[in-house]
Design a protein around this nucleic acid. Structure first.
Length: 202
DNA sequence: CGCGGGCCTTAGACTATAGA
DNA sequence: TCTATAGTCTAAGGCCCGCG
């Protein structure tokens, strides 16, 4: 059983959440508000009153706090310095809660994006396997068949187009904005059948 | 220079949970 | 069911800084 005391109110001891009144003299001095093993904890009524005041004015001036104490009898027994500290801690708690909520929101977005990336990675790996297989097929047969140049080039461009469309779709999902392809200097693009065939050579 | 606010830290009170 | 332990909440101490 741990002795506890309510600031300015009825002292009590706490045991498994059950309050039991015990005679305690004072709790003014000492680290962490502890005097002879006592720990100050405001009553739910006091906290409710403080919360109401905080809702109206989160940062009251010294003068305003004194006025609030006068106007609210339930707080009249609490030291003005304790009221000041309570408001400081309350502001701090709110700030921490807001930051935690923001971090959770960011975490949710990153988790969703990670899921998209994992799915896209899986799909691209399958695509790579298929292309590697097709590449081997072309290498094997390239010396035995004469392929229509236009048709092969169109097929090649079609593969690139599909890849671009897929990537655009993914990026727009991930970023929430439309993506347009821009030809950058130095980017390698198959412009002819010869380029395509050349890249197939070992 | 004193006061008050912000920020970080400390430690008691309380809660949830695992394990005997 | 009881107990030990980890985690959370919160009042208050300490330090730093800006302001009048």
């Amino acid at each position: 059983k741990v002795r506890s005391v309510v600031a300015g109110g009825e002292p009590f001891s706490l045991t498994a959440g059950v309050r039991e009144m015990i005679p305690v003299t004072s709790c003014k001095e000492g680290k962490m508000g502890i005097d002879q093993g006592k720990y100050v904890r405001y009553t739910p009524e006091q906290v409710e009153a403080l919360e109401r005041l905080y809702h109206d004015c989160p940062k009251p001036s010294s003068l305003r706090r004194q006025q609030l104490i006068r106007e609210c009898p339930i707080l009249s027994n609490i030291d003005p310095k304790q009221i000041k500290v309570w408001f400081q801690n309350r502001r701090c708690r709110e700030k921490q809660r807001k930051e935690a909520a923001q971090l959770q929101a960011v975490n949710r977005k990153l988790t969703a994006m990670n899921k998209l990336l994992m799915e896209e990675n899986d799909r691209l790996q399958k695509q790579v396997s298929q292309l590697v297989y097709e590449n081997g097929y072309f290498l094997f047969f390239k010396d035995f068949f004469i392929v229509d140049a236009n048709r092969l080039c169109c097929a090649c461009c079609r593969v690139i187009s599909i890849a671009e469309e897929t990537l655009s779709e993914f990026l727009s999902k991930a970023t929430g904005t439309a993506v347009e392809w821009v030809q950058m200097p130095g980017m390698k693009v198959w412009t002819s059948l010869f380029d395509f065939l050349f890249c197939l050579l070992p």
